[in-house]
Write a protein that binds this DNA or RNA. Structure first.
Length: 258
DNA sequence: AAACCGGGGCA
DNA sequence: TGCCCAGGTTT
């Protein structure tokens, strides 16, 4: 029997629209002013995204400014010696990212010098995976591209798909499918939508102690709805235990609820 | 699909 | 010490 492919989750269009609206209204009021949100320069977006891989925003800020002062554009980076690039990265950690960025700069410079604008082409570059490819397409070129990073994965998991295992291959595929269904119609709107999704995960729908009381999309969140008996008012205290999306009573299959 | 990789901060 | 962070690459 050929194993039937697990059906990907479907988000009803109306539900998606309501989600987008509330998310956007929240973002307009709470978005942080981050330097890479003030530019569409593909090079600068690329630098920010590589620095931000597995690294918190607060720790990237200083490095970002210093790096760009040292290497203002792609060609200056491509022309630099590896040693200089490594120095500019010193302290940030994950130094393979610096090598990847440098290799990328040289590779693109050796070609036509243009950073690609589609996720497919971007993903062929060193150090650029599915997330970063979507991020550059969306944030630099304002293309209508989906992206799923750890923040987005957590938000979508909790709100729309608590039943999937978010770290598994299938779970991630499901979350990407949801992310694509949620995309607004235009690339311009997608830029804001994607930023907002990530911002919500970073500021409200956090890994530990999520601020559900301050969440613009808690109504309709399948993880919050799954936790009864907790009337949470605005600005509520961090929960001792996160919603643990998808834990409808963590029962090993077989032991029925008492 | 799962394993592995790799820095640093903070509870 | 363990978990988390705007993941990617390799097996």
């Amino acid at each position: 029997m050929p194993r039937s492919p697990a059906p990907l989750p479907v988000v009803p269009p109306e539900e998606g629209q309501r989600f987008r609206r509330r998310l956007h209204a929240w973002y307009r009021r709470h978005a942080r002013d981050l330097p890479w949100r003030r530019t569409r320069d593909p090079y600068r977006i690329l630098v920010s995204e590589l620095m931000l891989q597995q690294t918190q925003v607060s720790r990237v800020l200083d490095f970002y400014h210093r790096f760009l002062a040292r290497f203002p554009d792609l060609s200056s980076l491509a022309a630099a010696r590896p040693q200089r690039v490594r120095e500019a990265w010193a302290g940030l950690g994950y130094y393979a990212r610096a090598r990847n960025l440098h290799a990328l700069a040289r590779q693109v410079t050796a070609a036509d010098g243009a950073i690609p604008d589609t996720p497919e082409a971007l993903q062929a570059l060193p150090g650029v995976g599915a997330y970063t490819a979507g991020a550059v397409a969306s944030f630099a070129y304002e293309r209508r591209a989906a992206l799923v990073d750890t923040n987005v994965a957590r938000v979508l998991h909790r709100v729309f798909a608590p039943e999937v295992a978010p770290k598994s291959g299938r779970g991630l595929k499901a979350l990407w499918a949801i992310a694509e269904q949620l995309l607004p119609r235009t690339g311009r709107a997608s830029w804001t939508h994607n930023q907002a999704l990530m911002e919500l995960g970073a500021l409200v729908c956090t890994a530990r102690a999520p601020k559900c009381g301050a969440c613009p999309v808690r109504q309709g969140c399948r993880s919050v709805d799954a936790v009864p008996g907790r009337p949470r008012g605005p600005g509520d205290e961090p929960r001792a235990t996160p919603p643990r999306a998808g834990v409808r009573s963590r029962r090993r299959s077989g032991s029925p609820p008492a």
